[in-house]
Design a binder for these strands. Structure first.
Lengths: 252, 252
DNA sequence: CGTCGGATTGAAGATACTCAACATGAGTGG
DNA sequence: CCACTCATGTTGAGTATCTTCAATCCGACG
């Protein structure tokens, strides 16, 4: 059986014989098997290992409060499950085996070796791309399992938080130069439907868009409508996190 | 005006004074401004610089053949536009300024310095996470701008290609142990609608699911239905790419 | 042979779309 | 300063896709 991770990585660039051995060693040392429908990783896990799918099929997924769920990605042989926990701290989603699945388990030390190679700056850039991915996954959940009102509310909450991170959200007001057409392109709706939904949110006194700015009138209520949980943004030290703690009764 | 990239990165971990200077230097050397609705980067670009949003708002987007488009992410101050081109080769999507936008432009040499720091293996891992992001973006397009039939067809095409990369798609047949319920969770539909749509595809003799396997009966036609363009998977050396070139008249 | 999860089908209803008209408001030129 | 224009926003009516709920079927497995 050829090594699927090796085959995959060689799509990118041919590896030297030494590197090939490195990969093989990485994936053959320790294995774990998971029966169908069992959890490989749960939301909140902060494992000291990483898992690479060798055989079988697994799915990344997020559960929603209403019981529905959204699968954001399928993991086939060669795919890495949880590279991000080493950078982001904890899993913001779960991974489940779909069929009988065999994973290579790479111990903490090996990963830490790789990470110490990196400078703080490279590591920070890596963190940045990984949070970007988390945002993309959340957008998939938006499109797959939330209706127009929730979707817009969620987008607004996310933008507010992100602007808070860079210190540009005074008084829960953020720059918002988007046309409704563009907002529709972002949310996967039509501009007509965005218009009607925006009107609902305005009538509820939740938000208001005026002169290129989005005024969030009732952040706590909006977060409730959106079922907004900022965990996926992986904030650690920032002002945004403190403001969430203060404003959102959801997290209590 | 505080440096937004600095503020963002410090969400991850406090940076030393030296690193702070490094970031500042990176973002202040060269700037470019973009008027509203102008392109910052176009699909297909393979720039020798990277762009970081300093002021304004920009959007990542993909255009579809039918003229619709899907915005996959908004870029606010501190966000990096195109870190991936250095690893993936070329942009698989465009970036447009929404408002008047100022970007820091970091020259090629600085990035190459960062990259040479990395071993081939770390670089390959980075490539892997970046293609994963590209797949997530494509899933957003699926959910936002394709109907059930196109969405399923597109997922099937993607899975086929990914299995080909790791050499596990003999005769256009791939493992497919998913229930329709799980397929629904992945596509953002209900299992009932997945069932009906699957029936359509079966009646058209495009695909067939039997005993945990997906048989793709007419790959060329399926790719046409899905408007499948494998560019976003960033294949370079692989068998999958050769098979695409042979099978898909779309690419001719 | 019975049971149970998953697949399939039908019918009714909701969310979101299309098409089309009309309003508003900023900017332009007479 | 007003009329005109053009892009954007707003609203209505009819329609389509997709959902919900419910019944039935099928096949694997004890």
């Amino acid at each position: 059986m050829p090594n699927p991770l090796l085959m995959k990585l060689e799509q990118f660039a041919p590896l030297s014989l030494h590197e090939q051995e490195q990969v093989t060693e990485l994936t053959c040392r320790r294995r774990a098997t998971f029966p169908p429908r069992s959890d490989i990783l749960r939301e909140g896990d902060h494992a000291e290992t990483i898992h690479i799918v060798i055989e079988g099929l697994a799915a990344r997924y997020k559960n929603l409060p209403d019981g529905s769920r959204q699968i954001t990605a399928f993991l086939i042989p060669g795919d890495i499950c949880d590279l991000e926990v080493f950078v982001l701290g904890e899993m913001d989603h779960g991974i489940q085996a779909i069929s009988h699945t065999v994973c290579a388990v790479v111990p903490a030390e090996r990963i830490k070796e790789l990470l110490t190679e990196l400078t703080s700056l490279t590591r920070a850039l890596w963190w940045s791309t990984m949070t970007d991915s988390a945002v993309l996954r959340e957008r998939i959940v938006d499109h797959g399992r939330r209706d127009a009102r929730e979707r817009l509310a969620h987008l607004f909450c996310e933008m507010l938080t992100r602007y808070q991170v860079v210190g540009q959200a005074p008084g829960d007001t953020i720059p918002f130069p988007l046309t409704q057409e563009e907002l529709a392109d972002a949310t996967g709706l039509t501009s007509v439907h965005v218009n009607r939904t925006l009107r609902m949110l305005r009538d509820e006194r939740l938000v208001e868009i005026r002169r290129g700015e989005l005024h969030i009138l009732d952040a706590a209520k909006l977060k409730q409508v959106a079922e907004f949980d900022p965990t996926y943004l992986h904030l650690k030290n920032g002002r945004a996190e403190r403001e969430h703690a203060a404003a959102a009764p959801l997290n209590a």
